[in-house]
Design a protein around this nucleic acid. Sequence first.
DNA 1: CGGGTGACAGACC
DNA 2: TGGTCTGCCACCC
Length: 112
Amino acid sequence: MSAMQNHAEAVWASVAAIPAGRVASYGQIAQLAGIPRHARLVGRILRELPTDTALPWHRVLRADGRIAFPEDSEKHLQQKTRLSSEGIQAQGGKVRMRDYQWQAETPCGPTS
DNA sequence: CGGGTGACAGACC
DNA sequence: TGGTCTGCCACCC
């Protein structure tokens, strides 16, 4: 088993844990997967996912709420559509992370 | 072994 | 509020 596979499994588990109607940033997933500061690696791992994957990869966004894919990309539209079906709408091409970002640990009430 | 790359993030105008 | 630039670190060639 390669190290990459090991990281990939941790990333898969973290992504799978994102509840519907919530989103997470790449950096957040990396941290949950036990590989802090490896957001770009998370992106690479998610990129390798098959089209028919059951993982909610569409719930992973950039830290600023933007979809990582180019706007003219087919994946971009697909991700935006899936998020919309979960009640998450992008305003101005961005998602309000303040409202929709998943708090995996919920230490307290960060907002409010 | 060295250099380029990226589904990012944070700092800075 | 928002666009741009730089740092980052593993992966690939």
